[in-house]
């Protein structure tokens, strides 16, 4: 094959995002739809670090979905989405897509990249949490990194099992029972060479198990990387009041309603994109009160300093949170 590049493959994304066409739709597992997206005229899409999201416009909202490729500039992006009947409608939107449909996406967002100095990468996936891990595993195989993948899923419902077996070979350890997965993980976390990093994505109990087990075994936080794949995993939280320092307004934020949604309902315009604490768009400056951080975007020092909040997912520890609005 001879290809002549006429444009930089990794150039900045177009203003206003990427216009893409649905090039393929298939069932990855019961209830899980894999969608292949291409540029309408063909051509390479921007490269991305493993574990990145594509932020897709889904009707009137935007949702972030993990890209499953190895991250090299390629003609297509693939996402795999679990239908969540109780979700916010994003997954239903994706499941309704047909070949030929046009969609709009923002460029890839990275918040879950592999650590380049790691001597070994221990990847842990539960259920649909396998999507970023497929990306990690593909990139690790391409670049010759040492890795293994623990993958737990319901019997018969393991999305991407065959591809993972291809990519990982004996480095894939799949489990159809939670107990078996947790036992094996506990043993693995207790016996990793120095320089190992662990990455986990899956249901909240699996994430908590990995984080708590690792901490109990003396893993420092810098070696443990967790990707919460859905804001739906977040609990509804306590009600609080947002005080607007500049305009003097007060906006009540009930349990189960995000600060962002409450502000919007009150007519306060806040730029936003992913609404899952990933993209960084909706950052607000906090002038008083202590934020309850639930985002994946701000760094630990920024969380500690407490002077900014990602209002799409984060809330308030205090009854009132004062914002620079």
């Amino acid at each position: 094959m001879t290809a002549v590049l006429s444009a930089p493959p990794a150039a900045a994304t177009e203003e206003g995002g990427l216009l893409l066409t649905v090039a393929g739709v298939e069932e990855a597992a019961p209830g899980i739809r894999t969608v292949t997206l291409r540029r309408p005229g063909g051509g390479l899409l921007p490269a991305y670090p493993p574990g990145s999201h594509l932020v897709l416009s889904c009707g009137d909202r935007r949702n972030a979905y993990s890209l499953t490729g190895d991250g090299m500039a390629a003609p297509e992006y693939r996402i795999s989405v679990l239908l969540c009947p109780d979700g916010d409608g994003g997954s239903a939107f994706v499941h309704a897509l047909q070949v030929g449909d046009a969609v709009v996406a923002a460029g890839p967002r990275s918040a879950f990249a592999p650590v380049s100095t790691a001597r070994h990468h221990l990847l842990v996936a539960g259920g649909i949490g396998v999507t970023p891990m497929l990306s990690h595993a593909r990139a690790a195989a391409r670049w010759g990194r040492s890795f293994e993948l623990f993958y737990g899923h319901r019997p018969g419902a393991g999305a991407h099992r065959a591809e993972l077996a291809d990519v990982c070979g004996p480095r894939l350890r799949a489990f159809e029972q939670a107990a078996g997965l947790l036992d094996a993980l506990g043993a693995a976390l207790a016996d990793q060479p120095m320089g190992t990093h662990v990455y986990v994505c899956g249901p909240a109990p699996l994430m908590a198990f990995v984080e708590e087990t690792a901490a109990g075994l003396g893993w420092p936080g810098d070696r443990v990387h967790a990707e919460r794949f859905s804001a739906a995993d977040l609990d509804p939280g306590e009600p609080f009041v947002a005080r607007l320092a500049r305009s003097g307004g007060r906006v009540p934020v009930p349990a189960g309603v995000s600060l962002l949604a409450a502000l919007e309902a009150a007519g306060v315009a806040v730029p936003s994109m992913c609404r899952q604490g990933v993209c960084g768009e909706c950052r607000l400056t906090v002038t008083a009160g202590r934020p309850l951080h639930r985002d994946l975007y701000l760094s630990p020092p920024e969380h500690a300093s407490g002077d900014a909040v990602m209002c799409c997912v984060s809330r308030s520890l205090d009854d009132e949170l004062e914002l620079d609005l």
Binding site: A190, P193, M194, L217, G218
Partner: peptide, 10 residues
């Protein structure tokens, strides 16, 4: 010693 150590080591 580092080569023999397991994560959790200080």
């Amino acid at each position: 010693q580092v080569a023999e150590a397991r994560v959790g080591w200080r």
